[in-house]
């Protein structure tokens, strides 16, 4: 950790939501174009957020607000510590904690919709977590560095050495960002069999907090994708962009799956692409 990292981490606190909101706006625009629609203005996510915070909604119980706010706080802190240069594995556990808070907020409502959404979110978390941990294992193993800047500065062509982990991690992003086909815990589109699932009964500012957390999250998640391509400036720009585009494409061309399929898919890809990619690095040492 040094001062330049501290500045970057502080900049993340301020610019993170701007960047995240913009990513979300691009996402919605690209999605609309893929569907042959004009789509909302690019800055629509910011309009939405401003509106949400201008609303007043009474919470369902005394814990709902603090739990949702903790979800945001720990999502922000996760990114902050990542860019500060802390041990990534320790920080990723904090990311889990952030997810746990949101799930708990949904459970606390006592509503069947929130509860089923929370159950599904937990299952999805369980589906992607092994892959996230294995990704970090691979990054650490190959670069011998345990923090963001160490890995970014290692110069190792990670995307080429760890293609399985890259594919697997991109896959977990679909789950983590609640994109189709793994958007089963909540709904961004018109399907509302669970009302809003995980975010049911979270209106106004509370939903705003969830949205904000989502923006912060997407920034450092793409930051982690960037690590795979950090060895070359061109790749560093193109790699995450392509991954981002592919995720939107998959979001638009697949139908939501059941939890069994989500769990099987997450675990299968972690086992095949993740563990499979790791084993050589333990059998023959570093190349």
């Amino acid at each position: 950790m040094n001062y330049s990292h501290l500045w970057i981490a502080l900049a993340y606190l301020v610019l993170g939501p701007l960047l995240g909101g913009l990513l979300s706006g691009i996402d919605r625009k690209v999605t609309a174009r893929m569907q042959g629609r004009m789509g909302p203005p690019l800055l629509q996510p910011f309009y939405d957020l401003r509106k949400l915070f201008s609303r007043r909604i009474d919470p369902v119980n005394a814990l709902q607000y603090p739990l949702v706010a903790s979800h945001l706080a720990f999502a922000v802190l996760t990114g902050f510590f990542i860019f500060l240069g802390g041990d990534l594995l320790l920080i990723i556990f904090m990311l889990t904690l952030s997810g746990v808070f949101l799930v708990l907020a949904a459970y606390s409502t006592g509503s069947p919709y929130g509860k089923i959404g929370a159950d599904r979110e937990l299952i999805v978390m369980m589906a992607y977590e092994p892959m996230v941990i294995l990704t970090l294992v691979g990054l650490f193993r190959v670069t011998k560095s345990y923090d963001f800047w160490g890995i970014a500065g290692s110069g190792v062509p990670l995307a080429l050495l760890l293609p399985g982990l890259l594919v697997g991690f991109a896959f977990t992003l679909i789950m983590k960002l609640r994109k189709s086909p793994f958007d089963l815990s909540t709904s961004h589109h018109a399907h509302q069999e669970l009302v809003k699932g995980l975010t049911a009964d979270m209106g106004g500012p509370m939903l705003g907090l969830v949205e904000l957390a989502h923006w912060y999250e997407s920034v450092y998640l793409y930051g982690l994708v960037f690590l795979f391509f950090s060895f070359n400036p061109l790749a560093a720009f193109l790699g995450p962009t392509v991954v981002y585009f592919l995720i939107i494409l998959i979001d638009n061309s697949t139908a939501r799956v059941k939890w069994e399929a989500a769990l099987t898919a997450g675990w299968a890809i972690a086992l095949v692409a993740g563990v499979g990619n790791l084993i050589p690095f333990y059998l023959r040492g570093l190349p």
């Binding site: 919605r28 609309a32 569907q35 042959g36 629609r37 004009m38 789509g39 909302p40 203005p41 629509q44 309009y47 939405d48 509106k51 909604i57 709904s187 018109a190 509302q192 669970l194 009302v195 809003k196 975010t199 049911a200 009964d201 979270m202 209106g203 106004g204 939903l207």
Partner: peptide, 26 residues
């Protein structure tokens, strides 16, 4: 109403999102 969401009419142009939860709706 559903047709409004389709590409031809594209309600999202106006920032509309259809939500299932009255607490999130305007």
């Amino acid at each position: 109403v559903l047709a409004c969401l389709t590409p031809v009419y594209d309600a999202e142009r106006f920032g509309c999102i259809v939500t299932g939860d009255p607490k999130q709706a305007d």
